[in-house]
Nucleic acid binder design. Structure first.
Lengths: 339, 339
DNA sequence: ATTCATTTTGCATTCGAATGCAAAAATGTT
DNA sequence: AACATTTTTGCATTCGAATGCAAAATGAAT
């Protein structure tokens, strides 16, 4: 008998040799529901424990064509919303015995390179919180890799997605502002390619239009706290009569509140109201108490994971869009319009 | 010629057949620095492009014994500090052509299960921001899997780690508080198992002791914003004369500031000063402008990744502790002690 | 004890790429 | 042109687990 090669890791052959059985027997003992006698299982498990054997997921993946890896793509820019979603997804994926391969996407240009990696690692599926082009969708489809778009409904292509419908909550929010007597509104947009923010403000615009308000001021940021500062300065200069600012996300709303209060010396909500979208943890901090529309991140993650798992098990499962509804959060960053 | 089996993915054999060469030639064309003639490379690359061939990372990993996967373990509880570190690490690892396998750890009990997964996937290395026991370290060592402890210096075992030394900055911070005339201090601790927080306040205590202050009030939270609320209530009841609160992290400092200001109606820093540790992005928000000690997350990530890569390439590389220094951030959450 | 049905087990092959070695081709030398 | 040298290529094997199929073992039924 050879002295053990300086392998650090026991293989199924090592276990088989020690237990005096075949390698296939070992393999079967680690496959739930396989046909193994109790005697065999005991022998093998004893040997496996002795050698600290664990099946090699890489080798297994090669033959089964299932890596049990899920690629999760998030945009690095959105520092606050996505961590909550990311952790939430990770927990739920582990519960399904899936591992998370994390990819951050700086800009749209990175996506192709990331997808190459996703495919090289034979991820069983993708959950993407960044935009994918039609070509990119097609690439994944050709490779039979299911994708779930997370919070990306209005993409050109018809793809399986989880989305949060904010219309009802936004209506409540905006009607409350109207009831508060606000007449002059402004939007604080996200970046031009920010689908989610655009959609949110589109809905807001419709609701305002329904109520006869069409003259809306516009300003733009990039979803970050910092970007709100310049946008608000600019906005106040152009349109000092605005009394309600609708921000495309909470982060900018927080930036807006701070700029108005601490730099411009205004009282929010007495002088001006600010509302956001997302329902971040930090939006509830006592310094902000944002009025906002909360996305049910936990339930969105559940939906994304369950839709993904279905498609991993049954690849031909058809496109599905699961829509959850956001809820209105009454904060203290909005209130009656000033005299 | 068989009709293509319904494989969605071209293999090196497919490329070889199309290019009229051997499979090994294809493999070599994708290995940087291999001996291949220009003619061969062109032929192969043309075929590879036509079939959209990309080498299978799983199969490659099996034979090379290099998965190019790095397991990153973070605690899910610390919602704010770690996302910044996580994204920072992910970017740097991608730059080294390594992929991130993300694991969240709810409690210490999860760690064993997570490590099993790490080993099953043959991660080339681990970056851990959660505590590992001696046994866990040994397990990884037996499997020749290098670990870098991220922000975990004072572990029982002598392990390679990145750590942020806050002593100098903390000294500056505390001496400033003393110069501001503060005499009665309180600590807002993290949870009992929070190594980092304990260490920070230990240092703070030493510095205060050096300055003749030994009677310090103590309160405890769990690093979250919310937990500061009860701790502060309790503290104010017991010791209304405290004028400076040192918090184990920024998140609790923010919670403390808000509780003091918005619930208790105090003026921070006029009535009471609050300082933190971390240097979170949100600590800079105008509503807080925390006085704190910032950890250089970017440089810490660089250090972690470079130390890891060294040990992946040369496994026998000895233990190394890289210590970066935190910097004092002057905010407006602290100021002169009240009369 | 014999036959047949059923469950367990092992054999041999497979997944896809990498690599040591030897054969073949290209290049250099005289 | 003949030979030596270097570079390029292909053959065959390997990594570690899973699995179809056939052989072996077990159990049931007569």
């Amino acid at each position: 008998m050879e002295p053990r090669k300086n392998k650090s890791r026991a293989t199924s052959y090592d276990v088989a040799r020690l237990a005096g059985v075949s390698q296939s027997a070992v393999s079967r003992c680690f496959k739930p529901g396989a046909s193994v006698s109790k005697k065999m299982r005991d022998k093998v498990m004893a040997a496996a424990n002795e050698l600290h054997y664990q099946p090699n997921a890489i080798a297994r993946g090669l033959i089964t064509r299932r890596s049990n890896l899920v690629a999760v793509m998030v945009s690095a820019r959105l520092n606050f919303y996505y961590p909550e979603a990311l952790f939430s997804l990770t927990e739920r994926l582990s519960a399904q015995n899936m591992r998370v391969l994390l990819f951050t996407v700086e800009s749209e240009d990175d996506v192709d390179a990331v997808l190459d990696q996703v495919l090289q690692y034979s991820a069983d599926g993708v959950i993407s919180a960044s935009h994918l082009s039609v070509a990119q969708h097609e690439l994944l489809e050709r490779r039979h890799t299911p994708v779930i778009m997370f919070n990306r409904y209005f993409d050109a292509i018809d793809s399986t997605s989880v989305w949060c419908d904010v219309r009802e909550a936004a209506t409540t929010m905006i009607e409350q502002l109207l009831a508060f007597g606000h007449k002059k509104f402004a939007f604080l947009h996200g970046p031009a390619d920010g689908m989610v923010g655009r959609e949110r403000l589109l809905i807001a615009r419709e609701i305002l239009t329904d109520n006869g308000i069409t003259d809306i001021e516009e300003a733009s940021g990039d979803y970050t706290y910092e970007s709100a500062s310049a946008a608000i300065q600019n906005l106040r200069k152009r349109a000092p009569d605005v009394t309600a600012i609708l921000c495309a996300n909470d982060m900018m709303a927080m930036g807006a509140v701070d700029e108005l209060r601490h730099v411009m010396g205004l009282n929010v909500p007495r002088d001006i109201s600010v509302v956001g979208f997302d329902g971040l943890g930090s939006a509830r901090f006592a310094s902000y108490e944002l009025t906002t529309v909360r996305q049910p991140i936990g339930r969105m993650s559940d939906a994304a994971v369950s839709m993904l798992m279905e498609r991993v098990e049954k690849p031909e499962t058809s496109v599905e869009k699961r829509v959850l509804t956001g809820s209105f959060i009454q904060g203290t960053s909005s209130g009656p319009a000033p005299q």
